[in-house]
Design a protein around this nucleic acid. Structure first.
Length: 359
DNA sequence: GATCCGTGGCA
DNA sequence: TTGCCAAGGAT
């Protein structure tokens, strides 16, 4: 039974932040600028896209996604493979699978739930996204605690406990803002004001405290430790893994692709056939034993392709061959080379780049 | 609580 | 070049 977490320090004024937001808020592709009621579909889509992804990366992809899936019914009716390909290059592909599943669930329910508690039960929606959608789309008085909010609050309170251990305490402290009448009157704006403050003033490295509407009310700034907060637990080093892949083309300029298993790393995405990714480099004979089809004369493409994942670094070698025509093995398919790039995750595009440079 | 899960930009 | 970081969620 968790005890309620006391707020040891009074929070600064919500009205001051909202006044700052009304003058300095960012214009963003996924944010309404006319003051009208936000569309829950667009709010949800943008929040999922923005999970661990920069605003700059999301902007164009948000517009492109909406052009292809204009409303939640269109998304729910689409094949999962089409959603995965639209997501290609954005990373964290479980988001795309969960997005599709969530669209089906919401369509079956007849619309989005309007509270954070009910939103939280949908696939791909955690505590943060539930609160963000509830606040922005439905004006529920909740405070979504993302990385920006955690950083702002950690500095306001001079919280020294490192993340992620401090997460619950920071989220609870942020929730304390809803006791402020001005903040409670505009939950969606208040949440986005905290995001904008974190993104433009209370930045990770060198915060612009002189421009902050809460300057003078921030414990970390008073103590001169604002740039050191929030503290973070040390992370593990990323090991190096090795793989070998195969680029097989036919006379019509199509390339052989394989769909990965539905869950796990790059789950459900297309790839160039290849070996597993392991600690030891692959010798040529050893690698060729994993070729997708027997017969063609494989030629090693000079050089290597590198790609960094969250928890390991990958170095790949590439073997290329051509066949006049090819019947794809079970679980594989032929795609025009020109269109394959757009459907592939970035790690696989690196191999196409390697082949193009060496061609 | 700890681990897994992508990618691009920037100091 | 390397490490850090971004509107996190699932297991």
């Amino acid at each position: 039974m968790p005890l309620p977490i006391p707020l040891p320090v009074p929070l600064p004024s919500g009205a001051e932040l909202l006044a700052w937001y009304d003058r300095h808020r960012r214009t963003l592709p996924f944010r309404r600028s006319d003051g009208g009621r936000p569309d829950p579909y667009r709010v949800w889509l943008s929040e999922v896209m923005l999970q661990q992804t920069t605003v700059a990366a999301v902007g164009p992809r948000f517009e492109r996604f909406l052009a292809r899936f204009p409303d939640i019914a269109a998304l729910a009716a689409a094949p999962e493979a089409a959603v995965m390909e639209e997501w290609a290059g954005l990373g964290y592909y479980a988001r795309a699978r969960n997005l599709h599943a969530c669209a089906k669930a919401v369509t079956a329910m007849g619309g989005f739930p309007r509270t954070a508690g009910a939103l939280r039960d949908l696939p791909g929606i955690g505590a943060y996204t539930a609160a963000a959608v509830a606040a922005i789309a439905f004006d529920e008085p909740v405070v979504p605690a993302d990385g920006n909010v955690e950083r702002v609050v950690a500095r306001l309170l001079a919280e020294e406990t490192p993340l992620p251990a401090a997460k619950p305490r920071l989220a609870a402290a942020a929730g304390g803002f809803m006791a402020d009448a001005a903040a409670r009157a505009r939950p969606g704006d208040f949440a986005q004001a905290l995001f904008d403050l974190g993104a433009t003033i209370c930045t990770p490295r060198t915060p612009a405290c002189a421009l902050c509407p809460w300057r003078g009310e921030c414990l970390a700034q008073r103590r001169g430790i604002q740039a050191e907060l929030p503290r973070k637990s040390p992370k593990r080093a990323r090991p190096l893994r090795h793989g070998a892949h195969f680029l097989l083309t036919d006379a019509e300029g199509r390339v052989l692709l394989r769909r990965r298993p539905p869950r796990g790393l790059l789950g459900g995405m297309l790839e160039l056939p290849g070996t597993e990714w392991r600690a030891a480099p692959w010798g040529e004979a050893e690698a060729l034993a994993h070729a997708p089809v027997p017969g063609p004369a494989w030629r090693r493409v000079p050089g290597v392709a590198r790609h960094g994942f969250t928890h390991f670094e990958l170095e790949m070698v590439l073997y290329a061959a051509a066949l006049p025509r090819l019947e794809p093995p079970e679980g594989m398919e032929m795609r025009p080379l020109a269109e394959a790039g757009a459907a592939l995750p970035t790690v696989m595009r690196r191999l196409l780049e390697l082949a193009a440079v060496r061609a």
